[in-house]
Structure formats: C-alpha cells, structure tokens
C-alpha cells in the first residue's frame, strides 16, 4: 500500500489525478473503521490532514466557504451563530473524540443516507466545491447525492470546500436515535426558514436511499406563509398548516425497514420531527421580532 501525504492542495490534486483510485482520508472516522474491519484495503491512501488551508473557513461573497478539513468541533466553536442548523447537527455527531476529527467533507465523501450534515446542507442550498487538475466544479447539493453512499464526485476530484449562505432566519435540526451519544440516526430532519427570500428549506436523512429535500412541503409552507402575510406579521401558525407540513415531509420519504427502525416508524417520526422543528423555528422567529422592536 502507498500512503501519500501531500503538503499542498496542488500536490493533492496531482496525486488524485495520477492515482484516481486513491482513497482520500481526512478525519478517518469512516475510512479507518472500514480498514480496521478489512472492509476495504485501498492500494493508495491520500492523507489530506497536512494541507493547512483545508482546515479553514472564510466568508466568500454572500456565502461562507467551509474548507474540507473543518471538523465538527471547529464548526461548533466558530460558526454556531451563522450556521445554527449545521451546528446543531454537528453537536449530535458521535462523541467529542469523533467531532474533533470528523469533517463535513468526510460526511459528504461517505454520502451515507444517515450522515447528519446532509439535512442542514440541503435546507441551506449549499454548494459543494470540487477541484481537480482539470479545474473547479460547483455542484449544487441537491445534485451531489447520487445513490446509497454514492456522490457526484469524479474519480480525479476532491472536495475543496462547501459553500453555504449564513442563516437569514431560524434553523432547526432534530434526530431520532436510540441513545444520546454515538447514534446513527433512525431519521433526522433539518429545517431552515429564509424570510429574506420567502422560501423554506426542509430535508431529511435515513428515510430514502439518499438524503433528500421535501420539496412539496417546502413549497407548501412558503406559499402558506406568504399568502397569510405571516413572514411580516409573524403571527402564530395555524395548527392545520403545521400538521399539513408534517404530512408532506413524511410523504417525501421512501424509507426501508432495517435494524434501526421500521419504515412506518421512520415516516411517523419524520412527520413528528417536522412539526416540532417548525414550531420551534417559528417561536424563535416570533421572539426575534420582539427583541428587534424593543
């Protein structure tokens, strides 16, 4: 086995072009489990942890650019105010030791339907910035997940960063698992309200072959909030709206039965999480007005 340790991003891209089958390793929290259990024996490992610039984030025009090496711990420490949904999801990942190593890009690389970063990234309309020696490609997050544990990266591409706008409204994340620490989600749900554009982001994990947006639910809620003038009035939500939103989120799912839960349970849990997070987010939105007026 070869172990490549590029010191710069250009070297990493050149190495990936030369060895398209090289397996990138960042935090190793997915890759090493596979190697330890002999599930994979890559001929070439490509270590990305020496490239300092990857571990940084920075503002990038209207968006934030989160480098591929940014860990969950770093994201929670630095960006909880600007990316509350992603930070909430990050707090539920593994344990402190896992969050100290695991990266958002690694979550994208694995593209597990249960990855916790996916629902907030979908709800935020994030963009994956992929690089290769051929150039730069911006992949909209909705086009990134192509199948169970498969993504849209070409063999010679590496994730350089994720681009996501900072929150312009309340965000929420909820996850159902079997215990508090170290749970792979049974289902997870992320919600982002965007008052600026009058749109809604709603997405779930572990309830379809890929993480997925609940498009009908998003459109329904955005239309309802506009038609009733609630983006401006911030009036209490109609309970029927909340119920319908939950039902539409559940309808978007196509879950399976597995050891972590049945399909029926997942669908039910999703509608409950969607309703709850909507109420929390709306309460937050109403409270913010009080604060700005005062």
């Amino acid at each position: 086995m070869e172990f490549l340790r590029p010191a710069t991003w250009d070297e990493a891209l050149a190495a990936k072009a030369e060895h398209p089958d090289a397996l990138p390793i960042a935090g190793g929290t997915d890759v090493m489990v596979e190697i330890n259990f002999d599930a994979t024996r890559p001929d070439v490992l490509l270590d990305l942890t020496r490239i300092d610039e990857l571990a940084d984030w920075s503002p990038d025009g209207e968006r934030l650019r989160i480098g591929a090496g940014v860990t969950y711990s770093r994201l929670i420490a630095d960006l909880a105010d600007r990316l509350p949904g992603l930070a909430m999801a990050s707090r539920t990942v593994g344990s402190p030791q896992i969050r100290n190593r695991g990266t958002i890009a690694g979550n994208l690389g694995s593209a597990s339907p249960a990855g916790d970063a996916h629902p907030p990234l979908l709800a935020d309309d994030a963009v994956v910035e992929a690089h290769s020696t051929r150039g730069v490609r911006h992949i909209p997050i909705t086009e990134f997940y192509t199948g169970v544990k498969r993504n849209a990266l070409a063999k010679d591409e590496l994730i350089a960063a994720v681009l996501t706008p900072p929150a312009d409204g309340p965000q929420q994340f909820a996850k159902i698992g079997t215990r508090n620490a170290m749970v792979i989600s049974v289902t997870a749900f992320g919600l982002a309200l965007h008052p600026g554009t009058g749109t809604v982001g709603a997405a779930f994990g572990s309830a379809a072959p890929t993480p997925r947006r609940a498009t009908h639910a998003e459109e329904f809620l955005a239309a309802e909030l506009s038609a009733t003038g609630r983006w401006d009035s911030r009036a209490e939500l109609d309970p029927a709206t909340v119920t319908r939103f939950g039902a539409l989120v559940a309808e978007a799912a196509s879950p399976i039965d597995d050891v972590r839960g049945t399909a029926d349970y997942r669908t039910h849990a999703l509608s409950v999480m969607a309703r709850r997070t909507l109420v929390w987010a709306w309460t937050d939105y109403r409270r913010k007005r009080v604060r700005t007026c005062a």
Binding site: V33, N36, D47
Partner: peptide, 23 residues
C-alpha cells in the same frame, strides 16, 4: 477499533482523538 468505546483516547497535537481511527 471503531471509535465507539474511547478506551484508545490519546492526544494528537493536543486534541483528544480515538487512536484507533488515526492512520
């Protein structure tokens, strides 16, 4: 050997990590 138990926790450059998940 899968990051679940923490019995392999060490500091790597000052940060606690599971040594079983570091190559």
């Amino acid at each position: 050997e899968q990051g679940e138990c923490g019995s392999c926790t060490v500091y790597l450059d000052g940060t606690p990590v599971c040594a079983c998940l570091v190559a």
